[in-house]
Design a protein around this nucleic acid. Sequence first.
DNA 1: ACAACGATACCCT
DNA 2: GGGTATCGTTGTT
Length: 202
Amino acid sequence: MNSNSSACVPLPRSFYEEAPEKVARKLLGKMMIRRFEGKLLSGIIVEVEAYLSENDPASHNFKGKTKRNTVLFGEAGHAYVHSMRQYYLIDIVTESIDNPSSVLIRALEPIEGLVEMQITRRTSDPLKLASGPSRLCQALSIDKVLNGQDVTDSESPLIITSADVSKSQRLISVSPRIGISKASDSLLRFYIKDNPHVSLFR
DNA sequence: ACAACGATACCCT
DNA sequence: GGGTATCGTTGTT
């Protein structure tokens, strides 16, 4: 571990108060840290997608504000956790109030809590622990309880920090977003080139 | 009260 | 590469 205590300081809200494409790129290589039942579960963000505040038919905001997507319309730097069938996905809200954009976290390179992740994920294959938006939610025990959680608060059970940048080259690749039926041609998926923990290569 | 619908994962062939 | 499990939200009767 880095002895520098700044490694545990969350990224500030201003980090998220920009266009989602920009925040998406900046989030690559950052560290997501979950505190759960006294344990630390963490991983480096290696794959993300941007969902735009306007004219994005694939975004949950497209048909307006509902009970489900309310968090999207709120302050940047909060977690938007929603369910997909029996699974969960997590976004981080970007821009500003009433500009409902976000970045979907799609894959992590696991760093801390590997043993716990292996148990909750029911696999020891390191490439299946957190390579996928719902897989990483399982690995970090992220569920609906964390919907609306402020990830810029140092007391939060879920934060994002600057990672130890020395380890990865961080060349960024771009592709269409995965698993959507509308706006499936927009190049809004970003991932760290050649990182094996990316969920899918295109 | 109900039926349709996914920003998925897993297990097959 | 295709089928399916099985969940909450949403809009419609």
